[in-house]
Design a protein around this nucleic acid. Sequence first.
DNA 1: TGATGAAATATCGCACGCGATATAAAATTG
DNA 2: CAATTTTATATCGCGTGCGATATTTCATCA
Lengths: 146, 146
Amino acid sequence: MEYEQLKLGNQVCFPIYAASRLITRAYQPLLDQLDLTYPQYLVMMVLWENDQVSVNTITDKLILNTNTVTPLLKRMEVLGLITRKRSETDERSRTISLTEKGLKLREQAALVPMQLAEKLDVGELNIDEIIDLRDKLNRLIEAIKN
Amino acid sequence: MEYEQLKLGNQVCFPIYAASRLITRAYQPLLDQLDLTYPQYLVMMVLWENDQVSVNTITDKLILNTNTVTPLLKRMEVLGLITRKRSETDERSRTISLTEKGLKLREQAALVPMQLAEKLDVGELNIDEIIDLRDKLNRLIEAIKN
DNA sequence: TGATGAAATATCGCACGCGATATAAAATTG
DNA sequence: CAATTTTATATCGCGTGCGATATTTCATCA
């Protein structure tokens, strides 16, 4: 059994990669109604939890780089969801704030998690297993981040 | 506790999304030595396990669409790793085959899984937990695929 | 057998995602 | 305080990833 370690079925990383894309696909029809992409939805979740944050705060929470987040935020500004003002205390920094429209969207978005849970069909994995999955992934993430 | 379901920390999907990207980042320095990207490495794994397959086989195994895979394969053809011949029995189909160079690369690639495991630092999650994680993800994937 | 539908792959446009690099402002340091 | 380093964000180029649509060939069926 040479090269056993190179088989797809023996990989942990591939299921994570595949699951990530499948989940994004499952979200998309729901998010279309909010005119958001999945990464944009994540940014909104950060802001709904904590308005008026720096770009750095967003990159940290979402574990993304500025070269991903800056254009993302610009598109969201065009959509009228956020503003990107320069910080008054530190001219290098930008303060990202929700607009009225962005804040309002939260009400519609509140339905999304439940709708997604239905799409994922809880039958295959029960709540405890989902929580266990989440915790293991979070530990894996911490391990990789060092 | 309004909008509790919209908090990042309560999501399962976000850790999957984040872990996927972190893993790809961790792979990249190792794959750079083989001049491969992570998706290209996945295609190679499919072919090393089963040479001479159709585009459809690859899209099925990797759960990707043709509009992702076709350009991916074209780039890999330019790299001299594969060939893309039209099938003789069905002119619509293409047979993807490894070149000598592509086949040879397997020897170097065989080291990658171990090198990655070291990078991910097994300390945080032990082998049994990793296997459990993999199995839960595979069940989740099956559930989403319906 | 000719029309009609299905299957396999490809093209287009757009939004990420990131390594490498740039720019400007703040912090540090000699 | 001027020079240097660090920090925060932005730009560039390229490779995915995918919805929508097109193209070519095969299968089916009236």
